[in-house]
């Protein structure tokens, strides 16, 4: 079930500077890119680290701890040491505000499995 949250004004974000929000207890990173806004789970899938403090560049975020890289549009793990993708969340701009959907209950993309160990 859809569950939309407003996470701030569009102009409060700066392109290529990710921000972190906690929605329904889930840490989520919001990524303002040149292609628009994207949202992913906020903790690196390699080791527990908050990825929003990493470098966002051309829709890729690099975890500051061990330089794992993810595509924020798809969540895909692009570079070791990460194997497992980030979860992605729907984003919508409504008027001047950014909204993120954190579905309640089952979701389609939680079934993503590690690409190496699968």
């Amino acid at each position: 079930m859809a569950n939309w949250h407003c996470v701030g004004r569009v102009d409060a974000f700066e392109v290529d500077f990710s921000e972190e929000v906690t929605l329904d207890g889930q840490v989520i990173a919001v990524h303002p890119t040149e292609e628009g806004f994207f949202a992913t789970s906020g903790i690196c899938t390699h080791e527990d680290e908050r990825i929003f403090e990493g470098l966002l560049d051309r829709c890729q975020i690099e975890c500051p701890k061990h330089m794992a890289r993810f595509d924020v549009r798809t969540g895909a793990a692009l570079s070791p040491p990460a194997i497992t993708p980030l979860l992605t969340y729907q984003v919508e701009l409504r008027d001047d505000y950014v909204w993120v959907n954190v579905p309640v209950g089952d979701r389609d993309d939680t079934g993503q499995s590690p690409t190496w160990n699968s």
Binding site: E49, E53, G54, L55, D57, E62, P64, K65, M67
Partner: peptide
């Protein structure tokens, strides 16, 4: 602390 150095090192590396 990681929060202070991670991003500068990433930027410098590029």
């Amino acid at each position: 602390p990681l929060r202070d150095i991670g991003r500068p090192v990433s930027l410098a590396s590029r």
